[in-house]
Design a protein around this nucleic acid. Structure first.
Lengths: 188, 188
DNA sequence: ACCGACATGTAAGCTGTTACATGATTCC
DNA sequence: GGAATCATGTAACAGCTTACATGTCGGT
């Protein structure tokens, strides 16, 4: 239940409802979860049972009542303890690499088509991330310059990963042209 | 059940037992699964039911009998179809970025300690991957020059990702020294 | 008339993990 | 004597996903 700490973190920034948290989680690729209701609402109930958050209902006139969660002292301590715990390596799950691993059954044309499609998807994603950054719509609590810097670097981490991936696939496409084929020809 | 295609791929290379597949899956970071028995053996049973593989028992003198799986024509067609399907973006799940997102509660020293630990872990991983490559112990069917090139590039993809991550964390540690702290001081 | 935002929650299911269970053989 | 390799398989559960269920309000 790793999302627990993402939620505690958001609540340490400001009290939120489940609905708010869903939007926050989906707003940044660093919070990689889908932000589905089930996970968020049940985690909040669990955090409440553990005494890490409190909740209060806020009735509204035109909309359903909001259940606003606030982090407790115990919750802040729990979050702090986790933040200081041993960092773990990032996990990459790239099904594309598995596809590529068994792509030798393809013709040169089919393989390059596959690589071209992948390059296009990466470019699209990169363009989207850069556009978001340019327009300054990325999430950033920015309670002080250091936090602002950290969140900017987190965004940059994602952009850089896709930039690397794009560079890699271009190098791959370029290099494969010079590799002799099974039939002895080069390329095509 | 994405691992299905990883398994079909290995079987398209050579007939294998569940035990063999477990070792193959864990041998390369591209096949990101843990390679646990449950997943592999149950997937093999499912592939068999679907007619994508056949099995035969091979008794041995000193060891338990081996159940050797071989891919069928239907299995090869299924694999080929999947390899040609739309490539998807890689998924990065980096809990460290979540840790970092809420690291503003830490002192400058604690934060740098966390970053130093992360840098050390990445360096260790990178050294391990490079050592494996240097010693040439990486998996590579290499049925022809093109396949050899592809598998080399897959290994390079992983090395490059960690190299990027290392460069990023160094840049972060360096940059954070010049960011004014909450108390107005720089660094420390 | 329909769609999206607001707001809460539940059901069912898929994927993948750790750990268990068995048992011979080989190496240190 | 203990650990690792060979080899099969199962049980229990953690984590996360899609889809369902309900209902009001505001815009096109």
């Amino acid at each position: 239940m790793d999302i627990k700490y993402a939620i505690l973190g958001f609540l340490s920034w400001q009290p939120c409802t489940g609905y708010d948290l869903k939007k926050l989680v989906t707003s940044s690729p660093a919070f990689y979860w889908s932000g589905n209701n089930n996970q968020i609402y049940t985690t909040l109930v669990k955090l409440h049972k553990e005494g890490l958050v409190t909740d209060r209902m806020q009735p509204q006139e035109r909309y359903p009542a909001r259940r606003i969660y606030t982090v407790t002292e115990a919750g802040l301590a729990e979050l702090r303890g986790w933040v200081l715990s041993e960092p773990e390596l990032p996990q990459y799950r790239a099904m594309f690499l598995v596809q590529l691993a068994w792509a030798d059954a393809l013709s040169a044309g089919e393989l390059d088509g596959l690589l071209a499609k992948y390059e296009e998807e990466i470019k699209l994603q990169l363009r989207m991330l850069r556009e978001r950054e340019r327009r300054g719509i990325n999430l950033n609590p920015a309670r002080n310059p250091r936090e602002k810097y950290i969140w900017t670097m987190i965004d940059e981490n994602h952009i850089g990963r896709y930039a690397y991936e794009l560079e890699w696939v271009r190098r791959l496409r370029d290099g494969i042209k010079n590799v002799p084929q099974a039939n002895g020809k080069k390329g095509e």
